[in-house]
Design a protein around this nucleic acid. Structure first.
Lengths: 220, 220
DNA sequence: ATTTAAAGTTAGTCTAATCTAAAAATACCT
DNA sequence: AGGTATTTTTAGATTAGACTAACTTTAAAT
């Protein structure tokens, strides 16, 4: 079935909310995520349910059907592949790629996305470190943890970020932190859960709990 | 001002019709070009006139304003740059690029199109030989003529095609004709204006008047 | 167990873009 | 010039996607 861009966006929202909260998505949560009024969400949920894309029961919340999940995964695949294209081929910085990919992801052509995938050499992760589903919808799993869970003395490398907001990514740019940057944990400050970190074996910085929580790393 | 994809498509249609027929575009012509009912065109013309994109006077026909022309040119720029990307980077054949570029051209980002332009090395012509306007909207002009105007004995090279329909381009593929192919005109048949042509100095073929009219060449 | 608050749904309206049917304007033909 | 054909516009409806305001259901709190 042919989906509109709007329908696709709702599916993606439901997918992401379910992933984040590990339960069915509520009307209000979807409304906040998409940026519409709850009443508009109710309307759309009825239409999506009619197309067998979601399981919807009034006043309960919604989950994706197998079919709806497949559509959402393919949309995420397109989004992340375009992000890789924008960053690695057109040299956009990681904070700029999201908004443009939001538009590119809705271009409908199976052939296009598969050729793009090949052109980019089948990347497994996007510029924020998020995994890119392959043509079969399979994500690559990876051992990673929040920087918050590392301990003094640990050496780790940055694999991804849980937050894509421009201002946050620019904050990291200012600290010269990007994917692949190495950290040595110097100290953990119990009173506010901040950390003293040595970046790239050269600069010592203080990172707040909030920032540490966002950074995804693995030990080296 | 922010234009919808539909509005952009109307501007492009008006631009192309004016170019083809060298006069203002009529409601019916636009309707046929876009594939909608004439009544829908009238509605849209009113909206476009309200936005200062076209000069519209009831029952007369329309022309683009300077502003509307600039928008149309930028749309054509985006379309043709994406066609080059699809053909030269993703290895799509020339008959496949048009439909996908129809969607990609509506992605709104000045930065995107300019970076794409640079990535492709500022191409001057698309995969069908049509000129690509630069960031200032300027087209590259080129000496070219219809194959119909060549004479027996002339040697020419194919620079472009005036017709983009899939079936026609596939017909050329079947004859092993592509941009850059060289022709020697062997004979001109007055009774039906067909031509006997030697392709790439190896294969002799008969090309109908209609086909010759479409092929754009220059002497070598 | 009521009351109150929060979340979700219904009803009615709006805009963009389309349609069909009918009316009006223009063009064409002898 | 008058009549017919063609083109264009108007009028009224439709669909997707959104809104606000009002109502209903569920959850939370005393």
């Amino acid at each position: 079935m042919r989906l509109s861009s709007t329908e696709e966006n709702y599916l993606k929202a439901i997918y992401k909310i379910a992933e984040r909260e590990k339960k069915s998505a509520s009307t209000n949560t979807i409304a906040k995520y998409i940026g519409t009024a709850p009443a508009s969400v109710t309307d759309m949920l009825k239409r999506l349910a009619g197309k067998q894309l979601i399981n919807y029961e009034k006043y309960k919340g919604v989950t994706l059907t197998t079919y709806g999940g497949r559509e959402a995964t393919q949309l995420i695949r397109r989004h992340r592949l375009w992000e890789v294209f924008l960053a690695s081929k057109l040299r956009f910085s990681w904070e700029a790629v999201h908004d443009i990919a939001e538009e590119l992801e809705h271009v409908k052509s199976e052939e296009l996305v598969n050729r793009l995938d090949a052109f980019l050499d089948y990347p497994k992760f996007d510029p924020h470190g998020d995994p890119i589903p392959n043509a079969q919808g399979k994500f690559t799993l990876r051992n990673q943890m929040s920087l918050l869970d590392a301990h003094p003395g640990n050496k780790v490398v940055l694999l991804g970020v849980r937050e894509h907001e421009t201002s946050f990514l620019q904050y990291l740019n200012g600290l010269n932190i990007s994917l692949g940057t190495e950290f040595t944990i110097k100290a953990f400050n119990h009173f506010d859960k901040s950390m003293n970190i040595l970046i790239d074996h050269t600069r010592e910085t203080l990172l707040s709990e909030k920032v540490c929580q966002i950074l995804l790393v693995k030990k080296i």
